[in-house]
Write a protein that binds this DNA or RNA. Structure first.
Lengths: 385, 385
DNA sequence: CGGTTTTTGTTCTCGATGTGAACATAACAG
DNA sequence: CTGTTATGTTCACATCGAGAACAAAAACCG
């Protein structure tokens, strides 16, 4: 830690404050926020402006006092690109400091690794020297950051190094469920929660433990497979190779199973939505299926809350519908799974507010985390030395 | 972040390095370790010596070069006291920088909150101006840091503020299972593991998730009740108010249940050891009980590994015996609970090396964490300003 | 409309911090 | 005894943030 580190550190703190803020703030507010003098703030901002990391625009006068400037992203500043790579489609977006997202392009793909080449081409179409880091969201666990498994695409241990070639911009990659959770923690329902959890419910349940706004990644980067714990006593065998997984009782597969549909991907998702609709219309069997789903969900959440003590739990995917339709069922079974002494302060169960943009938003966040890394910021501030 | 913060920060880094090191190191090594110049190191150490936080002793020459000094705890430096408060006994120890433990006193207690007064008296008998922070390990969850539940002592929501009075030294408190895990992470089997878990197996299973050498505490400080997740499909009702808890199949209660002993505390623990002994001697029914215990343990560990992806898992209490007697059973059932793609790199399952000293050692660690807090260190370095 | 108040920007001095280079010191090796 | 090696020590230096004093620009008030 040298004096130069000190300066960089304060500049990163300032940039992070701008990035994380819900709304732009002024230079004077920044000084108060960081606990530094107005003179120091002026120096920091000045250097950041010169490095095209921050821009000052006149703030509309808001009371007495000399007018000040608003700190906004620099119009020529670095950009993060974010990719949401889904089952059969992808989306590319550009994200500026502060998190504003501009969708650039989207497409379908043929479920083969060739898709990565298409995406690279799309990135190239929009690339400029402003592009700093590319954040990539994909489904499936990514072991050690490069060994990708996407079971429903039949990708088993695909090497990301081969897909993301040396000609790519600096790329950071993580799985969609974890990134959706990160998005909620940074810009959604879990904002400000010190300990929280997020679950994305689709065919499967993936999620993440969020600590202080950061996602827990595990020793091999494959933490978060909460759906593959035997929390509801299912006797069935799961596609993952284990018996009794929670996901067998919660999510699309469980919703459609009693209607004779084979577990899997594709039409199953549409049918699951259909079951939800029918339950909403009062259909008895659908209602029963949804109730069972909600109950199993709640039971599992209670168990996890015992172990990890989150302040709040947010849900995305089908979880949003389950909360809307059956909040009481979820909460009742959650309480039943909670140790008695905890029942007076159960975890809040929240619908995610970032919604379908979760993976994309999360990918942007990890890309910006890389851009705002102290070493990279310093490099940008002192290009030569 | 001011210049003064920078100095404090480097001094704390140095003190932490000394505290965490397995063996004392020299001032020159410290400079290399922290990446600072020898002159800076001399200045830092000089001030820390003046503040009685560090002491320099001549190092025996180890080759060429001008002789240097070893950085050791100051003989008049601050001490942490650590208390391990158990079911019916307590231990008080003194711990110096670096973690060397000196047992001071121990006693029995009558299972009423009066024990806290006895402990306070013992602390007073050994108190000096060197005592900086008292670390306290107790069983049971401590909600929000002050609402204590120890079910087997019949303590329900006892207010720690009333037990730990204003006349106590600065006191930090946490539960024994979490502190045992912290001890393993800092000075035991989990040293150097970025993501790890620890479980203490007694009547119950308590544990903690350890991230970067720190224990995850949860939103209300009651994280770690992994034993109260339904991981093994037990149909029984647990004392905690939930059905199917993992602890019902693992630990002392499960070991003795089939032998007609009521679940609970006291003689049950002795009987559990007896069952282990008989299993070791080849008794069929005892063997069956121990096998079932080990299997349930492994099954749960596999499930938790799916969710949290630890590099290693350490066990204390009965877990040590189960590893010694039935490692294969544990590992086989763990693998069965692991998602297929994980089975080629399962978490290491380790016997804790800190042993019965876990809670005491962990209590010392949180006490030293408090002593090495930057604010406190700065206070000690600049007593007046 | 002009003076006052309030808030922020700007400038300058100052103490503190770590760096780097040069030199001094104390052991060991031959 | 002399050279080598590793470490301690000293000093000039650049950088950083703090703090105070002052300037500037708006709103408020009578």
């Amino acid at each position: 830690m040298t004096s130069a580190d000190l300066r960089t550190r304060n500049q990163v703190r300032l940039l992070r404050a701008v990035h994380d803020a819900a709304a732009p703030f002024t230079r004077a507010e920044a000084a108060r926020l960081l606990g530094i003098g107005r003179n120091t703030a002026a120096a920091l901002v000045g250097e950041l402006e010169a490095a095209r990391l921050l821009h000052e625009v006149p703030a509309e006068a808001g009371g007495r006092g000399r007018p000040t400037t608003l700190l906004v992203p620099h119009p020529q500043g670095p950009l993060a690109f974010a990719v949401d790579f889904r089952e059969d489609t992808w989306t590319l977006a550009s994200v500026e400091l502060g998190g504003r997202i501009t969708e650039l392009e989207g497409g379908e793909h043929d479920r083969t690794p060739r898709a990565f080449a298409d995406i690279r081409a799309a990135v190239a179409r929009h690339e400029s020297d402003r592009l700093a880091v590319l954040g990539f969201a994909t489904s499936g666990p990514i072991r050690d950051g490069h060994r990708l498994h996407i079971s429903h695409l039949g990708w088993d241990e695909v090497d990301l190094g081969a897909l993301v070639g040396d000609d790519w911009p600096v790329t950071v990659i993580d799985n969609d469920a974890r990134l959706a959770g990160l998005a909620e923690a940074r810009r959604g329902a879990l904002r400000g929660k010190g300990t929280a959890m997020h679950f994305h419910i689709d065919f499967d349940i993936g999620g993440t433990l969020l600590l202080g706004g950061d996602a827990q990644r595990g020793a091999h980067n494959v933490a978060g497979e909460f759906g593959h714990m035997p929390l509801t006593g299912s006797p069935l065998e799961c596609m993952c190779g284990v018996r009794g997984c929670w996901s067998l009782d919660v999510g699309a597969n469980a919703l459609v199973r009693r209607f004779g549909t084979r577990p899997g991907y594709g039409e199953g998702r549409g049918l699951a939505r259909e079951v939800l609709r029918r339950a909403e219309d009062g259909d008895a069997e659908a209602t029963e299926a949804v109730d069972a789903n909600a109950a199993a969900l709640g039971r599992g959440l209670g168990a996890l809350a015992n172990a990890l003590d989150p302040e709040a739990i947010s849900l995305s995917g089908l979880g949003v519908d389950l909360i809307r339709l059956r909040r009481e069922v979820i909460e009742a079974h959650c309480a039943e799974g909670l140790m008695a002494f905890r029942r007076d302060e159960p975890p809040q169960i929240l619908a995610g507010t970032v919604g379908a943009a979760g993976p994309l938003t999360g990918a942007a966040e990890i890309a910006w985390d890389a851009i705002l890394d102290p070493d990279r910021v310093r490099e940008r501030l002192q290009p030569k030395r």
